[in-house]
Design a protein around this nucleic acid. Sequence first.
RNA 1: GGCUGCGUAGCUCAGUCGGUUAGAGCACAGCAUUCAUAAUGCUGAAGUCGUUGGUUCGAGUCCAACCGCAGCUACCA
Length: 667
Amino acid sequence: MRRILVTSALLNANGPIHLGHLFEDILTDIWVRFQRMMGNECYYVCADDAHGTATMLAAERLGTTAEAMIESLRQEHAEDFRRFHVAHDNYYSTHSPENERLTRAIYERLAEGGRTFTAEVEQLYDPERKLFLADRFVKGTCPRCGADDQYGDNCQECGATYDATELGNPRSTLSDNTPELRSSEHFFFDLAQFTDFLKEWTASDAVQPEVANKLGEWLTGGLKAWDISRDGPYFGFTIPGAQDKYFYVWMDAPVGYMASFENLCDQTEGLDPEDFWRPDSDAEVHHFIGKDIINFHCLFWPAVLQGAGYRTPTKVHTHGFVTVDGAKMSKSRGTFINASTYLEHLDPEYLRYYFATKLSANTADVDIQLDDFVQRVNSDLVGKVVNIASRCAGFIHRGFDGVLAATVHDEALWAEASGARRELAELYERGDVGRAVRQITALADRTNQYIAEHEPWKHVNDPERRDEVQGVCSLGINVFRALVIYLKPILPAMAAKAEAFLKVAPLAWEDAGTPLTMHEIDRFKPLCTRIDRKDVDKVVAATVAQAETESEHVADEGSREVGIDDFGKIDLRIAKVLDANFVDGADKLLELRLDLGDNQSTVFAGIREAYDPAPLVGRLVVVVANLAPRKMRFGTSEGMVLAAGPGGEDIFLVSPDTGAEPGMRVT
RNA sequence: GGCUGCGUAGCUCAGUCGGUUAGAGCACAGCAUUCAUAAUGCUGAAGUCGUUGGUUCGAGUCCAACCGCAGCUACCA
């Protein structure tokens, strides 16, 4: 018997669970349930990833504490997963005492072993918010192509990658202030020391071949030291022996797997985390992740474990991303579907089955096609598999008191169905679930053909052929039972209903090796109903409606009371229109050249339908002078001209009374 | 730009070591059937295997270039 610890990637504590999360945890859950059916001892833990600047800022916005916010999200996530039959043994949080202790202990072991060092790092600092700015909180001009409004790590326009400190005119997206360059001591994990170890580890079958290729690229390029510290304020664990330094979220996140498992062990008699994590452990550790976090799980994490004297992962299973109808999930298209929205209209097992049909052992992206989703479930599950039980059970009850035949009517068919368990087990083990499902439905096809060939409905009233009818329908039921076993990791709830119908104890994988004979079964009740395409449309419509409500929320926040300080941040100025022109190719824009007293600026205003350019020249308007420049299709707009009205031809520019001069501040 | 992967029927995908006429399911059309949740069975139509060139007796498969798509490009959650 194998002892296996399984994890799926931690979830950011920043919102509800959606299809993408479900994909990962469902595919992990299928693998876990399969292992358990094989009789292996398999534990499945996960957690919310609670730390980071983003958590701190989100809690601030909600007017609550980070702790309260992450705990309520954690409960919501755990409940959503439970309703999708994802059987986590523990769903914990990285913000836990176990994790704090483990992270510090691991860090101290690394430090003692000479695996870490400190260095001064120059970083942009927002003096108003009093924080160092992560790349995503800085915007400025690309140092290579000069495009405006680019984030601190790479340019969307030209694709250049650079340091946030290289940006021209940097500003903080948190306060809109100009950040200053400050130096701070950072702690580094010396990843390069592990290069040889990692080359060896990635060449083993711990990762899929294409992942090994990708890692090879990083490994031959030379590994850089990994910055594992952040300056306060930060939401995370403090680094022992340092002043106001925190562990970077990715340092304690994977340790969160260990912490979640340790927390489970504390509640489970006889389960010891050391048995799984000590270097000579013969237990297995499997991580399931998306391909976006390969570097953390296949470089940093094994190196950290190795450096701290733990065992390294047996295998990291990497999957691709989920798209819907060929495109990224989108709120406005209604395809950014949350777990809870789905559950209001559809059975979770439909989604589990559909994901299963799409699962492979490689890292290709998985596209959910809503029409295909409906068809696959209805024709495979209801039309083929369940149909076998449905068409056979009636004969067994009407003619034979619900009792199955004593012998197997067609040995070849039974051998095929029963013998498939070996190859199917290999496919499940490898994660090639889609192929397994195809073989399972092919078996269902064979069985429906077999029943059609023997036409039990014609012979049921012929006393001479009663035994044949019982034999055919009994074999049908037996193949159905084998198919239920093979599908049970994917469809646990349907399997439970089928077990009740068959009047058997919970089925294990090897039960497919032995047929039921002279066994009484229950009357057949529908195990699975067809999907109505209308219900899928309802989910999409509800998702669109949510997106609209959310944008209204944002609008509401816009009209909430603000203090005079907030108002003071907006620099309103009187400006004179020096020049106004149509913009080639733009239906709604006019390009305005404005005199702001001591300087000039160019503004694109969406007023073309209401105003001709010529009469505007010389006119006084009110502009937001310190609005962040916005790169638009036709150029960069450096401000915003104030106007009222619903739009179209009904736009009315705001003007000052006579006497106002360009450059005057509006207060 | 570099790298990783992908591109086969309307859709989802098989296609092993290069080897006969490129396969399956769904959808579609016709027929049969009525035990079954309008379920099932049989038959059929449907493909320039992204493009071009190369290696070979022979290429969907190997090589090169190009086109298209997705992702990565490390202190990003």
